[in-house]
Design a protein around this nucleic acid. Structure first.
Ligand code: MN
Ligand code: MN
Ligand code: ZN
Ligand code: ZN
Lengths: 145, 145
DNA sequence: AGGCATAATGATACGAGGTCTCGATAGTAG
DNA sequence: CTACTATCGAGACCTCGTATCATTATGCCT
């Protein structure tokens, strides 16, 4: 049995469900466990494949729930495909390695001020932004020529 | 007949086709004209609807071609839907108004240096990034309370 | 522990958005 | 004009995600 890569996820999920009057079902725990078991990012379809006994709609519903609760963040790959990842809560961005796929959190987003200034020049009032950064992680740099 | 909103597009497109040994077909020009006629951004399906006599696959093929040539840029809306827009060539971002949909180009992207510094701290080598900025354009600010 | 109200599930159909296939058509070089 | 072949159009197909709805099972109340 593979060790949980994100051990706190299960407990936090259960706690949040209880707080918000949502039911702790066996299926929900199955989905959360399948996610906690993973390192790195994953697609909804991958979870569906890993849990053939769980309905596809249910997998999508629960991933959405986990994301709304802040336990999962969206990772947009360069090819446009949407992945999810257990992650820091709150606003942040990702450094996505185009070689191995690793997506590490880039905390302390300090571009909001820069954006407000640059956009303000055109009279635009910034309320939010979406940013993904692509490149090579440390490991992949040393492996590549 | 509506005036072309982007008059240079047609000629530039034809020139690029000739340069790269691709054929100047009637269908290609129809698609390019339908696009040049628009202000703002649009979806592939909107072009399909505007050109019912042109095959859907062909519309998608030619939009992709125009985008690869640099005449169109992708605009990712907050809801995740992909639009296209006649645009400045080369790397740039957008200020997308969440009220009226206006997407104006944000030129002179000066976040690359900032990103290199912040990412470099984690040993990550930045090669590119994707950024969309959301908020209210000048007009929509004055209309709103 | 047993019963109830209803949240959650899963099978399935549906829809948007986009690609693939392949025979037919039409640019273009010569 | 002809031949070559890039491009086209129709439709099948695919992925990702949501809507519907009969069935199940959770949490609470007694
Ligand atoms: Mn994250
Ligand atoms: Mn643009
Ligand atoms: Zn890597
Ligand atoms: Zn606006």
């Amino acid at each position: 049995m593979p060790a949980a890569t994100h051990p706190p996820l299960l407990d936090s999920f259960i706690a949040h469900l209880a707080e918000s009057d949502q039911r702790v079902t066996a299926t929900r725990l199955q989905v959360a466990k399948a996610i906690a078991r993973r390192g790195g990012h994953f697609t909804a379809e991958e979870i569906c494949a890993a849990l053939p006994s769980v309905g596809r709609a249910t997998v999508y519903r629960n991933i959405k729930l986990l994301a709304e609760m802040g336990f999962l963040c969206r990772v947009l790959l360069e090819d446009g495909s949407l992945h999810y990842q257990v992650s820091h809560r709150g606003h942040h961005h990702h450094l996505v390695c185009t070689a191995c796929g690793l997506a590490q959190d880039l905390l302390g987003c300090d571009i909001q001020d820069l954006l407000r200034t640059r956009a303000g020049d055109s009279g635009f009032a910034v309320s939010g932004h979406w940013l993904e950064v692509y490149g090579l992680c440390r490991d992949c740099q040393s492996k590549a020529p």
